[in-house]
């Protein structure tokens, strides 16, 4: 989803910025990788309920 600025903000004269897509991807990867690791390990443990 894109975001925008209100007309009031545009009138402030502040120079708009562009958030680099690479930074967003990096930030999500940084939190996503440990979370995926935790999910994988927990699913592996949870499976023992049905297999063990």
């Amino acid at each position: 989803m894109s975001t925008s600025i209100s007309k009031e903000q545009s009138a402030d004269g502040q120079r708009p910025v562009h958030t680099p897509t690479g930074l967003i991807a990096f930030a999500w990867t940084l939190v996503g990788v440990p979370l995926a690791y935790g999910l994988y390990q927990t699913v592996k443990t949870a499976l023992t309920l049905f297999t063990g």
Partner: peptide, 20 residues
């Protein structure tokens, strides 16, 4: 304070970095 054009999807990973 974010300047115009800042992408709000950078905020959830910032929050997750703390809560995780």
């Amino acid at each position: 304070v974010a300047r115009p054009g800042f992408n709000r999807w950078l905020i959830p990973p910032a929050a997750l970095a703390v809560h995780l």
